Computed example of a mutant assay.
Amino acid sequence: MLRAGALAAVPALAMGEQTPGLAASRRRPTVFVAGDSTAATYATADHPRAGWGQALPVFLHDGVRVVNEALSGASSKSFYDLGRLDRIRAAIRPGDTLLISFGHNDEKITDPARGTDPWTTFQEHLRLYLDGARAARATPILVTPVERRRFTADGTPYLSHGDYPAAMTALATETGTELIDLTRLSFDLWSRLGPEATKDHLLWLEPGESVNYPDGVQDNTHFQAHGAIEVARLVVANSRGIPGRDRRALCDTDIPDDVLTWPPTRPAEGIEGV
């Protein structure tokens, strides 16, 4: 039963495609994504911006569906309050998987609609996602927030998420939930690449390089296609519970950006943020 405010129409995404209704009968295992703009699926008008949830199917066999409910601007609290968890619970089935990745917008503690405290309300909200998946006999997986591109003037990378990754890690241990430490994994990747090479992963574009960003853009949080693909690789490669992992794709270091597709409109429209 959906709470008041739950949305009626639910996009089902597989490489940008939509099917009519999440609750429809199906046989294929499904990976649901609950998260923020770093994981979201973007539209043609946003190209080459992409989220890691948009790129997940690249590393999964065709027998697995991806339903990317990640929403721009969402925190663990606002995603729940908007009825987005209800919408997943209405569709998730035994044997499915729910990836849960928040933190970027939970850090906005001055915003009462989104901010949470890492050791209290953040963990309390995450428990709602764990309980919702387990009540449906699905598998929840916690994913710490992907790290931002942050370097000091001398090129030294630094962490930006405070206690939120540690709070999620502690909750995973307490509840026996699989954890993908994407904060650490992405930080290690950015550290290896350095300040300049990371610009090819994050949404850094020169003026005139993209018709969608005619004045250029310097975004240290969101990804272009290449970065979304590489972060999705980290997620799938470091999980025991995601079904249908394509080992050949995971070993392919030359996946082209145009393997991704961008739908005409953002499938999970919502508040803008991070």
Score class of each variant (00 low, 15 high):
Leu2Arg: 14
Arg3Gly: 15
Ala8Arg: 07
Ala12Gly: 13
Ala14Ser: 09
Met15Gly: 03
Glu17Ala: 15
Gly21His: 04
Gly21Met: 12
Leu22Val: 10
Ala23Thr: 15
Ala24Gly: 14
Ser25Trp: 04
Ser25Glu: 12
Arg27Phe: 05
Arg28Glu: 14
Val31Pro: 00
Val33Gln: 01
Ala34Ile: 00
Ser37Trp: 01
Thr38Ala: 10
Ala39Phe: 00
Thr44Lys: 14
Asp46Asn: 12
His47Ser: 09
Pro48Phe: 10
Leu56Ala: 04
Pro57Trp: 04
Val58Pro: 00
Phe59Arg: 09
Val64Ala: 06
Val66Gln: 03
Asn68Arg: 02
Asn68Leu: 11
Ser78Pro: 08
Tyr80Val: 15
Leu82His: 14
Gly83Leu: 03
Arg84Lys: 08
Arg87Ala: 14
Ala90Asn: 04
Ala91Phe: 00
Arg93Met: 06
Pro94Met: 02
Pro94Gly: 02
Leu99Ile: 00
Ser101Gly: 14
Phe102Leu: 11
Asp106Pro: 00
Lys108Pro: 01
Thr110Asn: 13
Thr116Gly: 06
Thr120His: 06
Thr120Val: 09
Thr121Asp: 10
Phe122Tyr: 15
Phe122Pro: 00
His125Arg: 14
Leu126Tyr: 00
Arg134Gly: 07
Arg134Asn: 06
Arg137Lys: 08
Pro140Gln: 05
Val143Met: 10
Val146Glu: 06
Glu147Leu: 08
Arg148Val: 03
Arg149Ile: 07
Arg149Gln: 05
Arg149Glu: 09
Ala153Trp: 00
Thr156Val: 14
Leu159Thr: 02
Ala166Leu: 12
Met168Thr: 01
Thr169Phe: 07
Thr169Trp: 10
Glu174Gly: 02
Gly176Glu: 14
Leu179Ala: 05
Ile180Phe: 02
Ile180Asn: 04
Asp181Tyr: 01
Leu182Ser: 12
Thr183Lys: 08
Arg184Gly: 10
Leu185Phe: 11
Phe187Val: 02
Ser191Phe: 02
Gly194Ser: 06
Gly194Lys: 05
Pro195Thr: 03
Ala197His: 08
Lys199Asn: 04
Gly208His: 02
Val211Thr: 07
Gly216Leu: 13
Val217Ile: 15
Val217Trp: 08
Gln218Trp: 03
Asp219Gln: 09
His222Phe: 03
His226Asp: 12
Val231Ser: 06
Val231Cys: 07
Val231Phe: 14
Ala232Trp: 01
Ala232His: 03
Ala232Ser: 12
Arg233Met: 13
Arg233Lys: 14
Arg233Pro: 13
Leu234Ser: 08
Leu234Gly: 01
Asn238Gln: 08
Pro243Ile: 02
Gly244Glu: 13
Arg245Pro: 13
Arg247Thr: 13
Arg248Val: 12
Ala249Asn: 04
Thr253Leu: 10
Ile255Cys: 08
Ile255Trp: 02
Asp257Met: 07
Thr261Tyr: 05
Pro267Tyr: 03
Glu269Gly: 09
Glu269Ala: 12
